[in-house]
Structure formats: C-alpha cells, structure tokens
C-alpha cells in the first residue's frame, strides 16, 4: 500500500546516513503514535469520570473554593513554551546546530517542565490546605485521578529528557537516539494537548458546572 516518503515525521531525515534507519524509525514512531492513542483513551476516560462526578462533592469544597486560575494560567504558558522549546531542541539536533544550542533548548525544556511540576504541586498543597484532598469526596477523587496523572506524565517526560541527554552525551548523535528524540517531542506535544483538555474541562468546566 502507500509507503510514506522520507520526511514522514517531523525531524526525521536519517536517509543519508544509514539506509533502512528511516524505515525502522518510521515503524517505531508509528508504534509510538498507537501507544499515545491508547494513553489518550486513559485520559479520555478520566475526563468522562470527572464529568460524571462534578456534582459528587458531598458537601466538601468545590471548584470555586479550590481552583486558582492565576496559577493555572502560569502553568499553561509554561507548558506551551516548553512545547516550543522541545521542538526547537529537535530541530537543533536535526540540523546539526552547535552543541551549545542543543544543550540550551534541552535545558530550557527541562527547566520549564520542572517548574510546571513545582507550580502544580504548590496548587495541590494549597488545595489540601482548604480541605481539598482526594479522600474528601468523589469529585475530588476524580480531580486527583486526572490532573496528577498528567503531572506524572510530565515527570516521566522530564526523566526521559534527562536520560536522553546523558545518552546523547555518551553515545553521540546516533540514528537510534535521534529517533528517540523525535518520540520524546511527540510525547511532549501530546501532553500539551491533554493539558488543553484539562484547562477546558477540569478547570473551566468545573467552575461553570460545579
């Protein structure tokens, strides 16, 4: 059937270095897409559960008491920017930019990812201070089942970034690593998509209907 040409994925152009690497990389990247879609269903279900549990506040604190939109706005900007920088990091690798640029974009992405997590955890602590803990109500259980799940993904992304950084340092820019960087970038963009869902449904939806 249809065969995707060389530039099938953002950042992929391994053809000149090693025939077959492109094909292998294409297969892995497609597999990663399938994995992301499976993960998407996880999130989709948590969204559905959240929607069904918005009213299950059982007399505990609700969205209006708990959500801090300023912090959410900051987190959104940070995550969005990191999505840009991870793309730039990938381009820097792909076009053999000087090492300093590669390190720069990787570093910025990592710092942004970590600061997102710090802000998110601060939010959770603040919520807990107001009695907003998952043990309090079905609504809060649903909230804590979903938002930290995304946070966990971001943390995994950070870990992945660090490991990849070390590997690039030790092994140089091989086809294998390049294709991993592509996948990391995909993952990171995917998390940004989920985050859009979270602000729209969890935060704004919660405030409107909760």
């Amino acid at each position: 059937m249809k065969r995707a040409p060389t530039h099938s994925y953002p950042g992929l152009n391994l053809g000149r270095r090693h025939p077959g690497a492109d094909k292998a990389s294409e297969v892995v990247t497609f597999g990663f897409w399938v994995f992301l879609m499976s993960d998407l269903v996880y999130f989709g279900l948590m969204f559905a559960i959240y929607i069904t549990m918005i009213d299950a506040q059982a007399g505990g604190p609700g969205p209006h008491e708990l959500f801090d939109l300023k912090s959410i706005f900051a987190q959104t900007l940070i995550l969005l920017t990191s999505s840009l920088t991870v793309g730039l990091a990938m381009l820097a690798l792909k076009y053999n930019l000087p090492r300093s640029r590669i390190v720069l974009w990787f570093g910025v992405t990592l710092v942004l990812g970590l600061s997102f997590l710090v802000l998110e955890i601060r939010d959770f602590v603040a919520m807990a201070d107001k009695g907003g803990i998952p043990q309090r109500s079905g609504f809060l259980s649903a909230f804590y089942g979903l938002v930290p799940l995304h946070g966990l993904h971001v943390a995994a992304g950070c870990l992945w970034l660090i490991v990849l950084g070390i590997q690039l340092r030790l092994m140089g820019l091989t086809d294998l690593l390049m294709s991993r960087v592509v996948r990391l970038a995909l993952f990171w963009h995917f998390l940004d998509l989920i985050w859009i869902g979270i602000i729209t449904i969890v935060y704004f939806g919660g405030l409107t209907y909760g």
Partner: peptide, 14 residues
C-alpha cells in the same frame, strides 16, 4: 489503598 471515593457508598462515590 488511598481511601479515594470513586466507587464507595459514601461521600459521592458511585
């Protein structure tokens, strides 16, 4: 394990 209330009878579980 964590005393959440997704499916419990009380506190809004379903």
């Amino acid at each position: 394990y964590l005393d959440f209330h997704f499916f419990t009878n009380d506190l809004g579980g379903n």
